[in-house]
Every structure is written in structure tokens, then in C-alpha cells.
Design a binder for these strands. Structure first.
Lengths: 182, 182
DNA sequence: ATTAGCACCTGACAC
DNA sequence: TGTGTCAGGTGCTAA
């Protein structure tokens, strides 16, 4: 049916996938007043045969069609990232089902030289911690990103229970924000 | 009956107070199918004798009990802030009524003077920032205050060894930065 | 235009 | 380890 390259918001904390209107209206029509109220529950099968249910609805405020409930679980399980592509298919072969596929982003993002190193011995530790732990890059529009998440750091593991002393936290972030505000 | 120290959300723009489940089910039972649907209207008397009505209901999605309608007016009139404590009481003395009381957040524990492993601001910087930052967006005019006010730190309300989980730290600072960028 | 209120949703974390 | 709780969110509607 169609594909969509995921935006940062699609894989971010908004927990929703925007379906481009032309595709939404063509393939997932919401019947006006009836199902249009609360949306639909759409079921898809992934590459492993696992079934995924997403709530599909229309947001009047943004006039867009979205998958909401269930979407974030999919993003997490598949470890989807901005630029990756999801595709929705319908196969009438055995029973007319919906399928959802995904693939890594076609070409690695070119390094624009935007990654900023924070100087200082403790800081480098912190940048690593932060990069690897920060699930969502900042919004792509507006001011230049404060944080950047290079591919190589995606899954660097920090034990989830790791804790840090306040003074180091404050020191680090004071710096961050001062840089940001310059 | 019980008390609750208010969270930033309880006094913030969500306009609701979460009643901890244990207390809710003990003192404000929602009778299954009857009142469970639409909640109740609870009436309380404050310290001045003024009557407050709150809508009390159960949110299925989060499985929590909340005061909604009317709550924000109470917060505003009493100028409640995060950390302040509300208490709910029932007095059978004259007529078995509900009372609602409130008090300012407990005075912080005196700073022990212990030195941090790494030089940095006292712990209260953190608490102060954390709580004062949330409720209502606090930029009246002029540049919003930078991260913390070292000059206003006379107490430590957290034991000096306290550490924080990464997720809390990141969440907090993400908010901070977003506010500054607004 | 703003916002209280409402019914939902989710991730983090304490146990 | 899971699981339940709940703090912090969302979009929508009505006023």
C-alpha cells in the first residue's frame, strides 16, 4: 500500500505515527460520523507473524491521521529510529490481512559535523551517558539541536539502575545549558 | 483519614489530584456499577468553613482515583504548591462531614554540612529547582532564572548521599531546556 | 483565544 | 524477576 520514512516525532515521545493524509484516506478510510468518533482498531502482522494492534484515528486539531495506542510498543520492540521506513501492506492471498514491515534507513545519515564534543574528562563520560540514554533527539525544527544521537551510541548500555551524584549532574547541565544559551 | 504531599502535577495544569489507591478505596469507595460510572461529588469543608465540591472518579486507563472538577479552584485559592500537604478528615462530631486541610511543605531538614565527594552546589539546589520549576510556567518577564539560585540555598532537604536515577534527571532537564527554548 | 474538564495513555519505578 | 501504582502526559470539547 504505502511506506513512510519515520520522522523523529514518529519514533519519539509523542507515541504516535502520522499517516500521510492521502494514504490514510485511501487505505484506511474512517467512515465519517460512525467510526470517525473513536477511531478504529487496526491489526497488522509483522515479519515474524506477531500481531500488532494500533488505534487509528483522526486528530481534528492537527487534521491528521494517526496511529496511537500500541505504536510506541512497536517502535521499541523494533528499535525504530528516525529515517527508518515502515511499510503497510495488504495481502489478499490468505484472508485479506494487513501487514506491517520495516527496514533500516536507506543510507546512514551523513555526518554534518554537528556533533559537539563537550571538553573535559568528566564530561566525556557524561556525554556518553547522555547520548546513550536519551531516547529522543530534540525536535528537528527551530534551534539547533542540543543533543545528537550518533548511530554508534544507540545501544551503548548503561545499567538502568545507575545513579549519579547531584553535583556532577548539576555541573554538567549547567555547562550544557550555558553553551546552549550563548 | 489521610494526607498527601502534593506533586507538581497535583498543583499543575492537569487540574486533578491523584488519590493514592489505598486511601481512595478505603475512605471514598466507589460503589461498583452505580456511582462507579460517573464518579461522585464529594463535599469538604475548609478551615474557614467554606464548602468545596470536587468531582471524584476513577480513571480506567491509569487505574487511579482522582479529584477533578473543582480541584484547580482549590489549588488556586489556597495557592498550593508542590510539596504542600493536603489532608482529608472525617469528623463525626457534628454531622459526619468531610474536611479538607492543607499546610505548607514541611520545613526542610537542616544541612548537615557534610562535604560532597565532588564540589558542587548543596542538595537543596536540586529540590528547589525541581519543585519550583513545575507548577505554572514561571516566566513573568525578563529572562527566566538560570538553573538554580545558589544564594537561596540554606537548607538541604535531601540526605547528602542522595542520588537520582538517570531517567528522572533526564526528564527534569529536558523540561528545563524546553522551557528555556520556548 | 484561553482554559477547565474529561477520558484516555504510558513509562518509570518501587516492591 | 514481574506487576501495580501513579506522576506526568495527550487530544478533544465546552464554556
Amino acid at each position: 500500500m504505502f511506506e513512510k520514512p519515520l520522522t523523529p516525532s514518529d519514533v519519539g515521545k509523542l507515541n504516535r505515527l502520522v499517516i500521510p493524509k492521502q494514504h490514510a484516506e485511501k487505505y484506511f478510510p474512517l467512515g465519517g460520523g460512525d467510526s470517525g468518533e473513536k477511531g478504529l482498531l487496526l491489526s497488522f502482522e509483522d515479519e515474524s507473524g506477531k500481531s500488532w494492534r494500533f488505534r487509528y484515528s483522526y486528530w481534528n486539531s492537527s487534521q491528521s491521521y494517526v496511529l496511537t495506542k500500541g505504536w510506541s510498543r512497536f517502535v521499541k520492540e523494533k528499535r525504530l529510529d528516525a529515517g527508518d521506513v515502515v511499510s503497510f501492506e495488504r495481502r489478499k492471498l490468505n484472508g485479506d490481512r494487513f501487514y506491517i514491515r520495516w527496514r533500516r534507513r536507506p543510507v546512514p545519515v551523513q555526518d554534518s559535523g554537528a556533533v559537539q564534543e563537550i571538553p573535559g574528562p568528566p564530561m566525556s563520560a557524561w556525554t556518553r551517558v547522555f547520548y546513550s540514554a536519551h531516547p529522543y533527539p530534540p525536535h528537528p525544527h527551530g534551534p539547533p539541536p542540543l543533543l545528537y544521537q550518533p548511530d554508534s551510541l544507540h545501544h551503548a548500555s548503561i545499567p538502568t539502575g545507575t545513579k549519579y551524584s547531584l553535583s556532577r549532574i548539576l555541573e554538567f547541565w549547567k555547562n550544557k545549558i550555558e553553551m546552549r544559551n550563548k
